[in-house]
Design a protein around this nucleic acid. Structure first.
Length: 615
DNA sequence: GTAATCACG
DNA sequence: ACGTACGTGATTACT
């Protein structure tokens, strides 16, 4: 047995690294007794983050409590694996920091399923996020193990990830290659692998006390654990990639980007992504660039370039001026380049041997609790054109079904703020923006009026001002000003709720408590954002509830992605109607007397089929 | 590492 | 006192 001693919060802890059968027998004995005393912290070290890649390796599995850690070298095979697997199967409760990652690793590489592990897991990252969801950039601690332990467990806790990166460099590895190549017996590697479970074991009871202290209900944490499990199962399934189509698209976009970059080069722009070069060249052509960025640089974003190219925000010809050929070339080159590198190439880089991509779903990403999806970021694929979504397919014999909540944030606003006339509109089954336009303008209200009041409504939810709403909608400021004034007269409860929520937050450490008991810290200088936080957060929890409903209804296997107000699913072609109705049922609910409704759309084999012509 | 930009709800 | 568009992820240029 190799052992390492370390000081954690003034106490000496021991990291055990079994080397032979006797050592492993000691581990089994310890695990049996420790599991009787309480939960066991669990972690893994692997070759990297690409769990679904061919060459991926599980290297060690670590178990620990507050004073002892055991680093089991899974990679050595044989008895090491059988002993670790036995522990994974028999330990009653686990503590894991960021459990979805380890669940997937152990599911795929240790033969212990997500379904078996998840019900026995407490995720300390979920608890920490419920305590304070802010990321470090927003003034929070963040939810990485290191800063949490530095704050709650031991101020002298080492930066195990960061220090390991230095070790990797010293050995001639990079951060990316080090985890795969470092010697399994390296002392620092084993010490830190062990320390992480000891810190997790010590962090959990502290977080539990803190959550109880600020009054977060256990039920909220349990709900988040269920969602984490469901989303991990979705990630394990992944989506089929049309590899042939994607490769062709990659080539087409590459050629398009290169052609337009060549055109831009004729005007002296060497790199179409350099705003400085573009601004200089355009100025040299006699264009007047008046807009500035926050930091004071000349602004040459898409909106500026579209105007110079005589196009509206949908790229339609305006006929207002002679199109500037450089602006035109840069717009096209940048779009092709971005769509290629951010989407097509990431699909090809992340696809597994079975032709599927497995995007990471972070169930608690935003301050409001909203989920995010990364690698690839499939929540943000272009929707103006179907070509990128066309790369992703339903399973063989399946079609895509997308079910959306209808105007969910407006319904949530009506429910939470008790907006009387808005609730009447929803109860009457009205399109809320057309309803508002009619209340103000009478039966003669036009689709253009609807658009104006839709803008005013979003302005209310987001906290926007007249000039911003005007810019976003393209409508003149005086018209927007009148619409916003009418909005306030019609729905006075919104302003009152905003003031009330801001006052309540000021009285409790600048934290607004959401409808589901979520703690949402407000920034002192923009407390108006509370209206958005309240709506966005409650809408997220309605989607979460819909996902739990879907599992209950037996259609978890069909779910593929959560997209804020939408559930994307792959369903057997012959039963698409039945599945569509079932998803609508799962997403239909009542929020304080306001109906929350959903509408399913049945597509073809590709996701792109829901965005234009059918495939 | 920061700023700018652009993709989504 | 007044008014403020909200929330993400990813890439590229540049210091």
């Amino acid at each position: 047995m190799r052992t390492y001693l370390h000081d954690v919060a003034g106490e000496t802890v021991t990291i055990h690294v079994p080397q032979n059968a006797d050592d492993l027998a000691q581990f089994t004995q310890w695990a049996r007794e420790a599991s009787r005393r309480g939960p066991i912290a669990l972690d893994t070290e692997t070759s990297g983050l690409d769990i679904f890649a061919d060459h991926y390796r599980l290297r060690t599995v670590q178990f620990g409590d507050r004073s002892d850690a055991w680093v089991i070298h899974w990679e050595r095979g044989g008895l090491f694996q059988s002993v670790a697997r036995l522990a994974l199967e028999n330990i009653r409760r686990f503590l894991i920091h960021n459990a979805p990652f380890d669940w997937l690793v152990l599911d795929r590489h240790a033969g212990v399923s997500v379904e078996s592990l998840a019900p026995r897991t407490t995720d300390t990252r979920i608890k920490a996020t419920l305590l304070d969801p802010r990321q470090p950039q927003e003034g929070g601690l963040g939810t990485a193990l290191k800063p949490l332990c530095g704050y709650y467990v031991d101020p002298s806790a080492p930066d195990t990830q960061g220090d390991l990166t230095s070790v990797f460099r010293g050995l001639g590895f990079t951060k990316a290659t080090g985890f795969a190549r470092i010697d399994l017996e390296h002392p620092t590697y084993n010490l830190y692998a062990g320390l992480d479970v000891i810190y997790t074991a010590r962090l959990d009871p502290i977080l539990t006390n803190q959550l109880a202290h600020v009054g977060v209900r256990d039920a909220l944490a349990e709900y988040e654990h269920e969602l984490a499990r469901i989303c991990t199962i979705m990630q394990r399934r992944g989506l089929v990639l049309d590899e042939e189509f994607t490769r062709e698209l990659d080539a087409t976009l590459a050629e398009e980007a290169s052609n337009y970059a060549e055109k831009a080069a004729r005007y002296g722009v060497e790199s179409v992504n350099s705003t400085r070069q573009i601004a200089e060249a355009l100025t040299g052509m006699g264009e007047l660039l008046t807009e500035r960025t926050g930091a004071g640089a000349v602004k040459v974003d898409k909106a500026v370039l579209l105007a110079l190219a005589d196009r509206d925000l949908q790229w339609q010809r305006l006929g207002a001026r002679t199109p500037n050929p450089l602006a035109e070339a840069v717009l096209h080159a940048k779009r092709s380049g971005k769509w290629r590198t951010t989407y097509a190439q990431t699909f090809l880089e992340t696809v597994d041997a079975d032709g599927r991509v497995h995007p990471f779903i972070n169930t608690l990403a935003a301050r409001t609790g909203r989920m995010s999806v990364t690698r690839p970021a499939v929540q943000t694929l272009p929707s103006s054109d179907q070509m990128i979504r066309r790369c992703l397919l339903a399973d063989p014999g399946h079609v895509m079904v997308s079910t959306d909540f209808q105007a969910v944030e407006m319904r949530v606003l009506a429910a939470l703020a008790g907006v009387k006339r808005m609730i009447e509109g929803f109860l009457a089954g009205e399109d809320i923006h057309a309803f508002t336009a009619r209340l103000v303008k009478g039966d003669g209200a036009t689709p253009k009026d609807r658009k104006i009041f839709k803008g005013a409504g979003f302005g209310k939810v987001y906290g926007g001002g007249i000039s911003t709403i005007s810019r976003q909608t393209g409508a003149p400021e005086d018209e927007i000003a009148r619409a916003v004034a009418a909005y306030d007269r019609l729905y006075p409860e919104i302003k009152r709720a905003s003031s009330r929520w801001q006052r309540e937050a000021r009285g409790s450490g600048m934290v607004y408590i959401s409808a589901t008991g979520r703690r949402l810290p407000l920034d002192r200088d923009r407390s108006y954002a509370v209206v958005n936080y309240a709506c966005q957060s409650a809408a997220r929890d309605l989607l979460g509830q819909a996902m739990l409903n879907a599992e209950e209804a037996g259609i978890l296997d069909a779910m593929r992605l959560p997209i804020h107000d939408e559930i994307l699913a792959s369903v057997p072609k012959g039963e698409a109607q039945e599945y569509a109705r079932e998803f609508e049922r799962c997403m239909t609910m009542d929020l304080y007397g306001v109906p929350i409704t959903a509408e399913a759309e049945i597509g073809g084999r590709s996701w792109g089929s829901l965005y234009g012509a059918d495939f």
